[in-house]
Structure formats: structure tokens, C-alpha cells
């Protein structure tokens, strides 16, 4: 287990005019670690994810990332080309709405193959073989490879999005409510899939969710956000079983037991 963090956020903040998106956030993510960011809507967790993934520009603080060569770089100092290369090779981003993360008019195989082609792979047969392998890993039948995601169910689309992101073997994946809007049984299947892929591939994941059960199942550590600030952090089971902050206690006690 590497003891050097993969991603470090320091005094990270984002203002939307006078409104605070998030403020003074510090966190670290290590290789192979799943970090859950939980909180109600409006707590700033999606803003935080945007800042960490460089989709939003911070008003304060910085995010550093350890590149594959071992160097730790302030992401703000990366050029656009470097950053975009990072985003389509070393990072993944699984979005809540698959239509935002997939090319809906492109076949499943093309969706998975895009990242490979983006990094210069030019052998159709190899790309297709790899796409097929990944469709299998996310439990999409091989004969759907040439269908486009518009003909897929919500769960299938989300699994396709995962395959599309993981095909370049990223080291860090951002997930924004990946199970939101799915039926419970479909959720369970997706969570199980994510869980096993994460451990097989040693992925680091930063997952934003309002669903504490999802956080418990997937994450090692947890960050609780409220009003743009991190109010509690710790091991996931620690935060959920022995919450300290009044707000976290409220959050945990508000979960319906199945």
C-alpha cells in the first residue's frame, strides 16, 4: 500500500458571487482508496467534486495530483492539454445522468473504444476486442456492442459509462451519485459491480452521494459536508456508527431502515 497521497486538496473554496459553494476544504485521497462525500443537496458536495476534478475553478486553495511519474502537481499549473489528457487517461468521471457521460448516438463499442482511440490506438480489431472484454466485465451482452445507448436501460447505460471510463485503467475515478435514479435492484447490481472493479483494479474513487447505504457499501473513508464545509471525517463505519456532529447524527438517524 502506497503511503503517498494521490490527490491533495488544501483550503479549497468556491464562491458563486456572494453565495458560498464550498469553503476551506482539505482532504487527501490515497491510491486504491474510496472516499465518500456525503451531505444533503446544497451541502456543496457536487461543487467539491467539480473543484477536485478541475471542472470548476477554485476561488481559493488548490488541488494537487500525483502523476504517473510520481511527481505531485498543482492542477492549476497544468496546461489545458495536460489536464485533458489526464482526464481521459488517468481519471474517470461517472456522472449521475448517463446521457452526460456517454455519446448517445455512438454504439456501445464506440463509446468504450473512444478513450483508446483518443490515446492513439489505431487498430480496429484490438479496440473492438478490448471493448468486448469491457462490456463483458460490466455485464453487457456481447451482441449489444453495436447498439447505441439510447436502446439501453438506465442500469445498462450506467454500466456502459463505467466501462467507458475504466478502459484506459485510470487511477482515480470521480462518481457523482452514480446510482441516483435507478431502481433498488438495479442499484444493487451496479454497486456490486463498482465494488468488485474498484478492488480488482485498485482504483481510487471519490464518490459523491446522499445515500449513506451506498457510502457504507463502497467507501473506506467518509467526508460529511454541510453548508459548504467539511464537518466530519473518518472511517466510513466510524462516522456512520458513531457520528459525532449533531448534523451527522441527524443524517444517520434519518435513514430509513429496510
Amino acid at each position: 500500500m502506497t503511503e503517498q497521497p494521490l490527490l491533495i486538496a488544501e483550503t479549497l473554496g468556491k464562491n458563486y458571487g456572494a453565495r458560498i459553494g464550498c469553503r476551506d476544504v482539505a482532504l487527501e485521497v490515497y491510491p486504491g482508496e474510496v472516499l465518500a462525500v456525503v451531505g444533503e443537496s446544497g451541502s456543496g458536495k457536487s461543487t467539491l467534486l467539480g473543484l477536485l476534478s478541475t471542472e470548476l475553478e477554485p476561488s481559493a486553495g488548490r488541488v494537487s495530483y500525483r502523476l504517473r511519474d510520481g511527481s505531485l502537481r498543482d492542477l492549476a499549473t497544468l496546461g489545458a492539454a495536460e489536464r485533458r489528457l489526464l482526464m481521459r487517461t488517468d481519471w474517470g468521471f461517472v456522472r449521475q445522468n448517463p446521457a452526460d457521460g456517454l455519446r448517445m448516438a455512438v454504439s456501445a463499442g464506440g463509446n468504450v473504444g473512444e478513450r483508446l482511440m483518443a490515446v492513439g490506438r489505431r487498430h480496429y480489431g484490438d479496440i473492438r476486442t478490448e471493448a468486448l472484454d469491457w462490456l463483458g466485465r460490466v455485464e453487457i451482452a456481447a451482441d449489444r456492442i453495436d447498439d447505441d445507448p439510447r436502446s439501453f436501460s438506465g442500469g445498462m447505460r450506467q454500466r456502459l459509462q463505467i466501462a467507458r471510463n475504466l478502459v484506459t485503467r485510470p487511477r482515480l475515478v470521480f462518481m457523482d451519485e452514480p446510482t441516483g435514479g435507478l431502481d433498488v435492484s438495479v442499484q444493487a447490481r451496479l454497486l456490486d459491480l463498482v465494488r468488485s472493479l474498484v478492488s480488482e483494479m485498485g482504483l481510487a474513487v471519490i464518490i459523491v452521494t446522499h445515500d449513506l447505504a451506498v457510502a457504507r457499501l463502497l467507501s473506506h473513508r467518509m467526508v460529511v459536508m454541510r453548508q459548504g464545509r467539511v464537518i466530519e471525517t473518518g472511517l466510513t463505519d466510524q462516522v456512520l456508527d458513531d457520528p459525532r456532529e449533531p448534523y451527522t447524527q441527524l443524517l444517520v438517524s434519518s435513514v430509513l431502515a429496510a
Binding site: G110, G113, E114, A118, V119, R128
Partner: peptide, 21 residues
């Protein structure tokens, strides 16, 4: 942006789709 950064993977996606279909 894609032209500026020479990100042309997408162009090959189009050709991939052709071959696939």
C-alpha cells in the same frame, strides 16, 4: 478545443462506427 489540443480520437470513433456497422 479539440483542434487546439489535437484531440482527434473522436474522428476515429466515426470511422470505428462505420466499420462496426
Amino acid at each position: 478545443q479539440m483542434h487546439a489540443l489535437e484531440e482527434y480520437g473522436l474522428m476515429h470513433v466515426k470511422l470505428y462506427e462505420d466499420i462496426a456497422r
